[in-house]
Design a protein around this nucleic acid. Structure first.
Lengths: 219, 219
DNA sequence: AAAATTATTTAGATTTGTCTAAAAATATTT
DNA sequence: AAATATTTTTAGACAAATCTAAATAATTTT
């Protein structure tokens, strides 16, 4: 089954969007992939005819099991390449996403497996996200959204919700990294912001938007 | 200047073909790139309008200095990735070409330079071909075609003329690698074949076609 | 439940890179 | 140098992936 770069990008986007929702709408996809709803409809039809999607017009779309398998291969490649860039080529973890978006479309199965081995079969990428193995099995982290933590719980940052440059800029400024430990001090109903204490440092404020983008495990 | 994969492949093909000829014909390009002459004409017009080619209809084509610069970047990427695959991922030198054909189109300049550094700034790839540096400067080997050697000269294989699977299969069968040492015993006018002695082994026959594909330096 | 709004699909156009068939230019042979 | 053969270009068509504008379906509001 050979897919174009464009087809792969749709499969990947549906995979990520359906994590939350179960089923994905045309408009959601169009926004995510920076294209127009009409273009999405065309592509959904094409991928459905290739048996990669379960799609009923007006009813949203999900990946078929075949589609899910392909999505996991793409995610695996993306996260392995990110690991390579950070661990071997000394990229910053906040500058690898775009390059990995290109590298993830290289098709050689042998390349991916050799790369995996070369990196020591890592289970998580530099952002803390789990890397599927060559059978498409992916560990899931016991991670919760920072927004859902109660006051006085301690936690460790283990992944971020997106790789947008804007988010990464803010994290850099606040000196929050994967592995940073913190304790929620209090929460404010008014704007849903939190005050947290960073281990070894003082208290800082986290906005609702930022908290929503941070996934932690309690410690 | 952003080029599509297809455009880059034309630039690269012209670069390699003009090594020998100086100027490249439409049919030559079509054969090399596995496409039809009519398609080549269209692309030549497009790349000419981007000022990457010097092209007069019916008169063949050459790279402009801008085109040559881009070609060298692509060749650099190709050969660095081949080095990575062989040196780091333990690929055989005869199985890296196709993967490198994909990797060479990844656009990040930073990636290429970091990769170069990671590999220890190699000057030659696993096939013995020189790798241009980040300024597009490429060492040229003092290498001659095996066909041009006189009887009783000793030489060392330092590069092969192509990476076609057929050629690599034959080299594997005859156990000829980069670095293999040999001595030309005699040449036959009739079919332009050579008899050579492989160091530590017996005499074998090299056809005109094979000799033409082997570049050596005398020792 | 009818009207208004929003979401989605259809219809038709555009761009890129390719193709085939035919025409034009160049090269080779007699 | 005329005829023939080869090479190259032009003209017109096609598939992929996108777009805009218009039509249709679904949802929400009143």
């Amino acid at each position: 089954m050979h897919l174009t770069v464009s087809e792969e990008n749709y499969i990947k986007a549906i995979f990520h969007l359906q994590e939350a929702d179960g089923t994905v709408s045309t408009n959601q996809l169009a926004a995510n992939i920076h294209t127009k709803p009409a273009s999405v409809t065309d592509m959904l039809k094409k991928l459905t005819s290739k048996r990669l999607l379960l799609y009923k017009p007006y009813q949203g779309v999900r990946l078929s099991s075949e589609g899910r398998k392909l999505a996991l291969e793409i995610v695996r490649k993306h996260r392995l390449w990110e690991s390579f860039l950070v661990d071997k080529l000394q990229f910053g973890w906040d500058e690898v996403h775009e390059v990995a978006e290109e590298l993830e479309h290289i098709s050689s199965k042998k390349l991916v497996d050799k790369l995996d081995q070369f990196l020591g079969n890592p289970r998580f990428d530099p952002h803390g996200d789990p890397i599927p193995d060559s059978n498409g099995v992916m560990l899931s982290l016991r991670q919760v959204n920072l927004l859902d933590l109660k006051p006085h719980t301690k936690a460790e940052v283990c992944s971020v919700g997106s790789q947008s440059p804007e988010l990464l800029e803010l994290l850099k400024h606040k000196q929050i990294l994967i592995g940073t430990r913190l304790e929620v001090q209090c929460k404010f109903e008014f704007d849903h912001s939190l005050e947290i204490q960073l281990e070894g440092r003082g208290n800082i404020t986290i906005s609702q938007q930022l908290a929503q983008a941070l996934f932690v495990k309690t410690i």
